[in-house]
Nucleic acid binder design. Structure first.
Lengths: 262, 262
DNA sequence: TAGTCAATAGTTGTCCTACAACTAGTGGAT
DNA sequence: ATCCACTAGTTGTAGGACAACTATTGACTA
């Protein structure tokens, strides 16, 4: 399965966590991607303090045993994500984002991943997990012709046991093995999709403010019926719609921080 | 003022709009930045149709008379912004974003710029434009010690004459010439800041849903008091806070589309 | 002493060339 | 009609070189 270069690189870089992370994801990620992910990880575990200058591109390129081009591209990615600031002639500095990490809506991450990066313990509370025929709206969003079956989930998203959002998800199961569907009724949707190598690689999302008294449940539900709605459709690598998802965030429980740059 | 290389590049690339745009902004932008801006422009004016493959990196590098590295970096930027999809071994394709351009909250653009890119005629309707002492909140956000004077603006943001948002802005004028302040009371804040070379280069923004019956005015104001709030502080290159800004978007008038990728 | 300025080492930006890895199509063999 | 090797074209990575910029040092000057 592996190509010659892959093997060579794995050999050259053995012992570095870049590969571990790649293998962990069953990874066919590019080298740049792996380096970028690893430096991101090192920043988030505070290997460098905010405001501090990280290693130079040359230094990183020798320690990672990759070319400077690769390191530069990786750093550019992190700069775009708002994690670092690259200054011509000076160096690359870790940005100072108080306690909160810029959520980076542009990067496709699962809620659990994001919550975990923010330093909380992620969790999910299932209310509904049913296989049922798709509604008209769902058929349109998921580009289904016939009235096919979909997996419908209603869940509360937890951070350290506290509900921060309510999530309504519809998953296109037309090309999924039954066992995977059963898995999704309990565990992480993204993880399940990953096992059969059809992890979503992009999503078209829309942000909106809504008042809706039919959303949410339980005692933690806001009584002004006010939510920040993130509505999105996830797509697989071949462009196939995988999931139509509406996440209703409760005010004050989750901070949508965005670092905007020129 | 210009360095030798700048002159050489200007000479080599003369006739290309990359320089025009740079000069227009009094530009000290990097070469990559100029190329990226120009390709972005060409995509937005539909030089290539959505889904279509644009010129190869080699081809672009020869027409722009820059190295392939520079073109690659520029294209990477556009990929982050969600405008193109770069496929290994195949080419770079223009993404298909219906009528709406992914607003790209990560890129720092003025409202007028964004509206203009979306194909509407931008406008501003002034309600208040006053110089007055800063409030406690404003002093905190703008990191002002003494009770200094600030420029306070209340405006309606227009697209094709229709109000899409209400904007409440506080500008730090402690280091601005009086004439520039006068300009801002009527024209674009960003353009005025640009004339004295202190254009903001980054902003820390927070998105939230709010109900507030004190926001907005006029007949177009929503009667459910519901807004999507974009609250942000703009910073200059030296880290100095320039402006504290709250923009209240009206539901349905402005689409916050985000293309999320892995 | 305080301030200015030239020199310098270190870092990012751009260039060039070369090759690896991948994609999509072509055309022949079965 | 199907499969498969081949090929041309494209993006990904490598390595070395120099330009441009930054921050610091230290000599010089007022």
């Amino acid at each position: 399965m592996s190509t010659p270069l892959d093997k060579a690189l794995l050999k050259r870089n053995e012992g570095l966590s870049v590969n571990t992370s790649s293998e962990q994801f069953g990874g066919r990620d590019s080298l740049t991607r792996r380096i970028s992910d690893d430096i991101r990880r090192r920043i988030l575990v505070k290997e460098w303090a905010p405001g501090e200058k990280i290693h130079s591109e040359s230094e990183l390129s020798t320690t990672y045993k990759v070319s400077r081009v690769t390191v530069r591209t990786a750093l550019k990615t992190l700069e775009y994500q708002g994690l670092v600031d690259i200054r011509h002639g000076s160096g690359t500095y870790v940005n100072d984002f108080g306690r909160a990490i810029p959520t980076g809506l542009n990067e496709l991450r699962s809620m659990s991943e994001t919550i975990s990066e923010l330093g909380y313990e992620p969790g999910m509370e299932y209310k509904i997990a049913d296989v049922r025929p798709a509604t008209d709206l769902e058929r349109e969003k998921l580009q289904l012709d016939a009235p096919e079956l979909v997996l419908y989930l209603e869940r509360a998203v937890l951070a350290d046991g506290k509900a921060v959002a309510f999530s309504y998800d519809t998953i296109n199961i037309s090309s999924l093995p039954e066992q995977v569907v059963e898995e999704m009724k309990r565990g992480s949707v993204f993880a399940s999709l990953d096992t059969i190598n059809s992890r979503p690689i992009r999503a078209l999302a829309e942000v909106d403010a809504v008042i809706d008294k039919n959303i949410g449940w339980g005692s933690q539900r806001p009584n002004d019926d006010l939510f920040l709605l993130l509505q999105q459709v996830h797509y697989a690598g071949d462009g196939e719609p995988l999931m139509y998802s509406r996440t209703y965030f409760m005010k004050g429980r989750f901070q949508f921080l965005i670092l905007r740059t020129r």
